[in-house]
């Protein structure tokens, strides 16, 4: 058994390279999905049906399908519409689109329970439109959603493992490559699991730290 781990250790560059890709994909996907989600949340809260209905359809549609199916659609079906992406970009796009829907729903939930006085006070101070949203509405709802957002980020990290199927060189893919080359399945995948666990623990610690600061602000 220790001999297996020695082989994985000898190829740690490869494993850590995959890990770096997983971290990069997760970070970029989180940032872009959050930005996209805050735009979709506006549409979800709109009073106009023509704006609200397509956003609702998009969010509900994403919540019905598995992430891998969306990744396949982006990777295989977009080229037939004339959009050609390499597997890394396709994977990132799928992560962003899919998780933006879930995050938009989380933001909408927090927004719906935001006290009306809060917004009225903003209006009284002369805030309106996008500035009202950015300065008055968004900060409290983002802070209120921190724990749930943390869970969604962990979901992004785990979803990124699906991208091994479209050959994105992330952590699971590299562990798979090492195992198939040297037949060290136990050591390769246990190392990958340990790294996933480490990354998710980091997210949980970050969430706890942000929550602590959010509580101090209140």
């Amino acid at each position: 058994m220790s001999h297996e781990f020695a082989i994985v250790w000898a190829h740690k560059d490869r494993l850590l390279g995959g890990f770096a890709n997983t971290i990069l994909l997760s970070l970029l996907a989180t940032a872009a999905a959050l930005a996209l989600a805050s735009a979709i949340a506006i549409a979800l809260m709109s009073h106009r049906r023509a704006v609200r209905a397509p956003a609702r359809g998009f969010v509900d549609g994403m919540r019905c399908i598995p992430f891998l199916l969306l990744a396949y659609i982006v990777y295989y079906a977009l080229p037939s519409l004339g959009i050609r992406l390499n597997n890394w970009t396709a994977g990132l796009c799928a992560l962003v689109i899919y998780n933006a829907a879930y995050m938009a729903e989380i933001l909408r939930g927090a927004w719906a329970s935001l006290p009306r006085e809060h917004i009225d006070a903003g209006l009284a101070f002369g805030f309106s439109g996008l500035k009202l949203y950015r300065r008055i509405v968004l900060p409290p709802i983002v802070l209120a959603c921190v724990p749930v957002m943390g869970n969604q980020i962990i979901q992004i990290i785990k979803d990124s493992a699906f991208l091994t199927i479209i050959a994105v060189p992330e952590l699971t893919h590299e562990a798979s490559a090492i195992q198939s080359m040297y037949y060290v399945p136990f050591a390769a995948f246990v190392s990958a699991v340990a790294l996933y666990w480490l990354l998710c623990r980091l997210v949980e610690l970050a969430v706890a730290a942000v929550e602590h600061r959010a509580r101090a602000r209140r």
Binding site: I154, I157, K158, D159, S160, A161, F162, T164, I165, L171, T172, A175, F189, A192, V193, Y196, W197, L199, C200, R201
Partner: peptide, 8 residues
């Protein structure tokens, strides 16, 4: 909870 089902 931190392990992707693919990896598992």
């Amino acid at each position: 909870r931190a392990t992707p089902l693919v990896t598992l």
